[in-house]
Amino acid sequence: MVVLILRLFWTFFLIGLFGFGGGYAMISMIQTEVVTHQHWMTMGQFTDIVAISQSTPGPIGINSATYVGYTAMLNAGYDPAWGILGSFIATFAVVFPSFVLMLIISKFLMKYKNHSAVESTFMGLRPAVVGLLAAAALLLMNEENFGNMSETPWQFWISVAMFCFAMIAHRVYRTNPITIILLCGITGMLLF
């Protein structure tokens, strides 16, 4: 048991330390470690975890670490109380490296914010971030989120309408994003 907990910690510590590029990149790392190397679960179980991590609130990296920690303990034959400990260890381990690194970087940034080298670096970074965000939105405009125009036209056109509604509500009326998400979720329950 102690060995499994230490392994969980170490695995997720490494994932947190080397997990560049956000949630989706992290998921492939978690998959390699958890399914292929450590054999903590089957690929089918892992796919379920990813699906749930994507469709529940919160960062995908945190969601999947919590879930993997729990499942790994249960699969090893321990009861749910130990599963909770596994979740906690995995979640803590995945956050810890970036917590320390970000503290150092935050300190450095606030101190040297007006230094010319930092300023010119951000001159290049800022426009690129706008592109990053645009690409993230474009990548999400896919069949998984909107449905297929010819196969599931009902879902597709309603999704397009919801997209437009959310855009207008947010940009023009400054509606709270939480309200928009809840409204669209409830509409989905009624129409789909």
Partner: peptide
């Protein structure tokens, strides 16, 4: 499932909006 199907397009719009 329906709840999530409904909110996904809104999430995409909310990501596109701040661009």
């Amino acid at each position: 499932e329906k709840f999530f199907k409904g909110l996904r397009p809104a999430v995409v719009a909310l990501i596109a909006a701040p661009v």
